[in-house]
Structures are given as structure tokens and as C-alpha cells.
Simulated assay, not measured.
Amino acid sequence: MQSQAGYILLALMSAVLMGTIGIFAKYAALPAEQITFFRLLFGSLFLVVYMLISGKKAQILHKPSKRHLINGAMLAGFMSFYVEAIDYTSMANVIMVIYLAPLLTAIIAHFVLGEKLKLFNIIAIGIALLGFILMSPSANTNTLANSDEAKGLFFSILALFTYSGFMLINRKPSQATAYQSTLIQLSVGSLCLLPLIITQPIQISGEQVAYLLAIGFLPGFLAILFAVKALQHLPAVTFGTLAYLEPVAVVSQAWWLFAESLTPIQLLGCSLIITAGMAQGLLSQGIQSQARPELAECK
């Protein structure tokens, strides 16, 4: 059985891998629905191959639960809206809106799932949110006057709510394994987009196929599997705070690949996000460590 620290590491790795989608999507230069469809389709195929070679063949064919079917649609919506949004506005603006989702999820989980927010949790979320604001570009009062920027904001908000729904649904206990949950969600997500794909011509070059395979493997197969595994064992507030590493990853990748420099304020924002994520992870691990002796005494 994996330790709490292991699930925290999976959440961090998922955040970093999720952050690669914007860059790959820019390079692929394909419509949002096509990028999302192949991300989900190739992601599910990579997962099936992994399950076959790792002795999990018996888990592939099973009866899916209704909530995993719903979450497949949530996943397809989130990914499509995310890619669609970056066609109209900058990646930084899209990320700024979407990453209100962990905060929204933690608040909903507090009232709906009984995952009570403690003072330390609220402080950690606040620090992460402050860091996130510092990382964001300066507000432009004329932004919404631009129709493309308005469309980008609209699709970003849709991505925000579908991502929050994805996290909340995966937090509910399930008899399915993480591999089964991920397979159903990836497969259903691709099926949701299939009608849009078959009604339009697809002209893809060899280079674009390579980018689509990378999208299917990294932010598709690995990122979603790690996220589902982590969400099944971490409180929503912990996963949500750790997920703030994604905007840090996006900014870092943009600096590395496109030579986009970070201002001192943005560097401070990155530091605050990482600090809040590490503190939240250590708190979660400490709570689990304290709970184990109590369970042992009960036995």
C-alpha cells in the first residue's frame, strides 16, 4: 500500500504533467476538440497497454459506475474548454481563472463531503491564491472590450467549473480501482467528442501526430492516472493546494522553451505557491501519521 507521501508526490507529478498541455497544444496547432479527442483516446489506449503488460488485464472489462460516466463528460469538457480558451487569450490568463477551481473545490467539499477546513488549510489556500495572483499578468481594464478576450474568459470559466466537478466526483469513495476509474473517464470523454470529430475533415501532418501522441501520454495517460490515484487518498483541500504547482510549471516551461523571463513579483508568487503546497502536504502526512497509532490502539 502506497504511503501518504507517495500520493502527495503523485499529485505534484500530475500538476506538472497537466501543465504541458498548453505548450503541446500550441505546437500541434489543431482545433481544441481534435486535440482533446486524441488526448483522451491515446491516453486510454496507453492505459490499456499498461494494464495488459502489468498483469491488470482482468480489470479492463467491468461495469462502470454512473458517476465515472459523468466524470468522463466532465473531463472532456474541462480539456476542451481549456484548449479552446488558449486560442482566444494567453495561457497565463486561462490558468489564472482555472486555478480558482482548487479553492472552489475545497469550499464545496467542506459543505458537501464533510472535509472540514481547518485554520491551517484556509491559510495555505490563501497563501497559494496570493502567490497565484502575483504570478498573473497585470490586470488590463480594456481586456473584456476585446471580443476574443471575452470568449477566452467565458471558456476559462467553463473549464473552471468542469475541473472542479472532476475533482469532487473523484473524491467520493469507489469500489473501482484507480486504473478502472481512469480508463472509463478517458474512454467516455473521447466518446463524448467523437460526434464532433467525425463531422469534420481531419488533416494531420506527421509532426502533429507526434505532438498528439505526446499529449496522449503525458497530460493524458500519466497526468490523469496520477490525479485519480491521488484524489482517492488525499482530501480535496490538500490535492487542490498541491495542484497550484501547475501554473508554476506552465510559467517555468514558457521561460525554458520561449525565453519568457519572470519578474521578481512572479518569482515571489512561485515561491509562495510551492511553500503553501509543501506545507499542505506535510500537514496531510502528519495527520495520517497521528491517525495510524490511534488505529493500532483500537485494534
Rank of each mutant, 00 (worst) to 15 (best):
L119E: 08
A106H: 05
V48C: 11
Q232T: 15
P264C: 05
E149I: 02
A5V: 15
Y88A: 07
S147W: 10
V248W: 01
A109H: 08
P195Q: 09
F217P: 15
I169D: 05
L119K: 14
Q2H: 15
Q266K: 01
Y82D: 09
L262G: 03
L10H: 13
P173Q: 08
G165P: 00
T20R: 08
A139K: 14
I198T: 01
C270L: 03
A243V: 08
L45C: 12
L222K: 01
H110T: 03
V94M: 12
G281Y: 05
L231N: 13
S44F: 11
A106T: 02
L191K: 00
S156Y: 04
R292G: 15
G114N: 06
E33K: 03
S190N: 04
R292I: 10
F37A: 02
I107R: 01
L168G: 07
G77Y: 10
H233C: 15
I157C: 07
A291H: 15
V94F: 07
F38I: 02
S136A: 03
S156G: 01
P293Q: 11
F217V: 13
Q285V: 11
S181F: 12
L268G: 13
G152F: 04
L196Y: 09
L61W: 11
G55F: 11
L41I: 05
V248Y: 00
Y88S: 07
Q285N: 15
L267V: 04
W256I: 05
A58V: 09
D148R: 05
Q290N: 13
G77T: 11
Y163I: 10
T263Y: 06
I122N: 02
I21S: 14
D148C: 07
F161G: 11
L272V: 03
L212D: 02
F154S: 10
S54F: 08
E33C: 01
A230L: 02
G114V: 02
Y179P: 15
S181T: 12
A210T: 10
L213D: 09
A28C: 02
Q34A: 09
S190I: 07
V209D: 09
A214E: 12
A210H: 06
L134N: 01
T263P: 08
L268C: 13
F166N: 06
Q203L: 09
F221P: 15
L10S: 10
G216L: 07
I197S: 06
S284R: 05
L245F: 12
D148I: 05
L103A: 09
A230T: 03
S136T: 00
P137A: 12
L113H: 00
G165Q: 07
Q232Y: 14
Y244F: 12
S190L: 08
I8M: 02
I122S: 05
A11W: 04
A243F: 12
S289I: 12
I274H: 06
M278F: 13
H62R: 03
K26N: 12
A254V: 04
L9F: 11
K118I: 08
L41M: 07
I107G: 03
Y7N: 06
I287Y: 13
F81H: 00
Q288T: 09
V228R: 10
F132D: 08
L213F: 10
L17D: 14
T20K: 07
Q175S: 15
T162A: 06
A109G: 08
L193I: 06
N140T: 13
G286L: 06
A176G: 11
N71W: 07
E260C: 03
F155L: 08
N71L: 06
